[in-house]
């Protein structure tokens, strides 16, 4: 059985939610695992949103920050995978929301906090405001032997990476060895999750083709506001819960339905801790400590 197929959903005591052992570096030599670490993925905070899908919208992000700050083992870094703010056509309000979002997340007790945009942040101005507040919309970084690539599939309002970014990705990957450990962050799914709901990236297949020769790749994304796991060949794609409101189960209806009524008992919101070791271990975290 392929390691990635061994899903183990384990209830953990205390703070931790559900652990999903993704096991996605199966080809990597054991001696190369030195420097294992963990990071936290936070996604789809939609700062500025108000409405019945989240009656506690003004406080959810702050509560999640308290929870992440309370983790027994501090993460090496935290990444927000897009839709930091809720969309607005008013450029001034967009910047006010980004400013306030940035102030709130400055409360995280981790120094290394990274961001990528979602369509709500970047699609109406091609990422202009996002760049002012958070820097580049796609970039790479290396940490303890793992190469991280962030992709921007939202600054183009047609949900494309675009030829220029794909060429940039190809050039970066050429510098990698086939068994390098690589993690990709993106907002929208790179694969066609539900084409009829536009849960896809228009040219995402081209990116997956570029990634496919590399044996140890895992993708983390947001956009769909729920935990979801999918394989394209040997590449695992893990969607994160949001911090604002849940979305319908993928493919539940021919047309994408509106967000379902908020039901706190379902614990629809949260963040996740990702441990990078011999396997990639995902632990879903609730907004507030139980």
């Amino acid at each position: 059985m392929h390691h990635s197929e061994r899903r183990q959903f384990l209830k953990l005591a205390g703070l931790a939610g559900v652990t999903f052992t993704a096991g996605l570096f199966p080809e990597r030599r054991a001696e190369a695992q030195a420097g294992d670490f963990h990071f936290v993925q936070m996604s789809d905070t939609h700062w500025g949103f108000k409405g019945p899908p989240n009656p506690d919208a003004e406080h959810t992000l702050e509560k999640a920050i308290v929870t992440v700050n309370g983790l027994a083992n501090k993460p090496d870094f935290i990444i927000f995978t897009g839709d930091l703010t809720h969309t607005t056509e008013d450029a001034k309000i967009r910047r006010e929301r980004m400013k306030r979002f940035k102030e709130i997340v400055s409360g995280l007790n981790v120094k290394d906090v990274r961001f990528i945009p979602g369509e709500h942040d970047a699609s109406l101005d091609k990422g202009e405001a996002f760049k002012e507040f958070f820097g580049a919309t796609h970039y790479t970084f290396d940490h303890k032997g793992v190469h991280f690539i962030t992709l921007d599939n939202v600054s183009d309002p047609g949900a494309k990476l675009g030829d220029e970014q794909l060429a940039w990705l190809a050039a970066d990957l050429k510098q990698r060895k086939p068994d390098d450990r690589i993690v990709v962050f993106t907002h929208r799914p790179l694969f066609d999750l539900v084409p009829n709901w536009d849960w896809a990236t228009a040219d995402g297949a081209k990116a997956i083709d570029l990634l496919m020769p590399y044996q140890n790749i895992v993708v983390f994304y947001g956009h769909i506001h729920q935990e979801h796991h999918h394989m394209t060949g040997h590449i695992a794609h893990h969607a994160a819960k949001s911090l604002i409101f849940p979305q319908a189960t993928p493919g539940d209806a021919p047309k994408r339905p509106p967000p379902p009524p908020f039901d706190a008992s379902l614990k629809p919101l949260g963040t996740r801790d990702v441990a990078m070791g011999k396997a990639v271990t995902i632990t879903e975290l609730p907004v507030t400590k139980a």
Binding site: H86, T88, P157, G158, A159, N196, D198, P254, K255, P258
Partner: peptide
Amino acid sequence: GSFAFFCDVFCGDGHEEMAGT
């Protein structure tokens, strides 16, 4: 059958609901 059509160019708050059959 019924086949969805929708806007796939992000156009603002409400874009996600811009669809037809």
